[in-house]
Amino acid sequence: MKYPNVFAITGVIGSGKSTVAKLLREAGETVLDADEYAKFILSEHYQEYPELVQELKQRFGDQVIHEGKINRKKLGELVFANKQKLEELNQLIHPRVRKLFEQDLLQYKGKRIFYDVPLLFEKNMQNDFAATIVVYAPEEIAIQRAANRLGLTKDQVKERMQNQISIEKKKKLADYVIENTQGMAELKEQVNMLLQTLENKYGTKQ
């Protein structure tokens, strides 16, 4: 186990990972986010990764670079419609995401951390963490939520979901499941119950 104080959170688009992360932060927990690291690399701080800009240009063409900046919208359109291209992008981004995550961990030594990892099971990383937590919502509910939140059609959401393990399989693989089907009050109660369970099994956070 690489990260014995870290609990990995995953799910699918629209299942409610971000909402659970928000509730955990409100409860005083530390939550790190793999997607935020990826955005950090591709958006605000792309200039710190000149070699990445060149690699993206070589693999995906000039269209993904606009005025020297990474065009995330165009890049997304390319990779979400093509599983092979998505895997190529992940191969470029994930090592850099992991490096940022591990750098942040240094300031939280011994403290309980939650880490939002969308591709936890897809990348076979589940054994790196103390335990895995899946935020669950039935696929149709997740699709509708994602379509509403992102302004996508249901077919576009389904296309993105095809690149991930199904939520039903993730639910079976998880150590803990948070059911996100009954509204905010019920979700908050489940988060609090999870925290109590983790404290009983792993000890209080430091």
Rank of each mutant, 00 (worst) to 15 (best):
T204Y: 15
D35Y: 08
F114P: 00
Y176E: 07
N5G: 06
P4G: 08
K109I: 14
G203M: 08
Q91R: 14
Y46A: 14
H45Q: 15
K111H: 12
K57S: 07
V191W: 00
Q91E: 11
A131D: 03
N200V: 15
N148A: 11
R25A: 14
I9K: 10
L86G: 00
I9T: 08
I133G: 01
Q84N: 12
N180S: 11
K172F: 07
Y176V: 00
G203R: 03
A21T: 07
S166C: 01
A142R: 03
I143M: 04
L120Q: 09
D62T: 06
G76T: 10
D62F: 08
L187E: 01
L23E: 10
D116V: 00
V177T: 07
K17P: 04
E44P: 00
L23P: 04
G151M: 10
R149Q: 10
L86Y: 01
E51F: 08
K188I: 03
P118W: 00
V31R: 03
G76H: 08
L42R: 08
L42S: 06
A131R: 10
Q156L: 00
Y108P: 02
A131H: 01
E179C: 08
R98A: 08
T10R: 01
N124A: 10
L150H: 13
K22R: 12
K83L: 15
P50Y: 11
R112N: 09
K57I: 06
I113S: 01
M1A: 05
N192I: 10
F7Y: 07
M161C: 12
E55K: 15
F40N: 11
V97T: 05
I141W: 09
Q156I: 02
L194K: 04
A21Y: 04
A27W: 02
I41K: 03
T19Q: 12
Q206N: 05
F101V: 05
D33T: 01
E36D: 13
Y176S: 05
V31A: 10
K169D: 15
A131Q: 01
R72P: 00
A185D: 14
E26D: 13
L23Y: 02
Y136G: 09
E77C: 11
P95C: 08
V64A: 00
L78Q: 05
K2L: 13
T19L: 15
E55C: 10
L32R: 03
G28Y: 00
K74Y: 13
V134M: 03
T197K: 15
I178W: 07
E48K: 15
T30H: 07
M1N: 06
A185I: 10
I133M: 06
P4H: 02
K99H: 14
S166V: 06
E88Q: 11
S43E: 15
I65W: 06
F60L: 03
I141N: 14
I167W: 00
E179T: 09
A81V: 09
D128R: 12
G110A: 03
Q58D: 15
R149W: 09
M184N: 12
D175M: 07
E29Y: 02
V31Q: 04
R59W: 01
G183N: 13
H94T: 04
L52Q: 11
Y49I: 00
L119D: 06
Y202H: 11
L78G: 02
L32H: 08
L86W: 01
D62I: 08
Q126C: 11
I143S: 01
Y49G: 02
I141L: 15
G28L: 02
Q47T: 09
L24H: 01
R149F: 09
E140R: 12
K39M: 05
L52E: 10
I165N: 08
G28W: 00
Q190T: 04
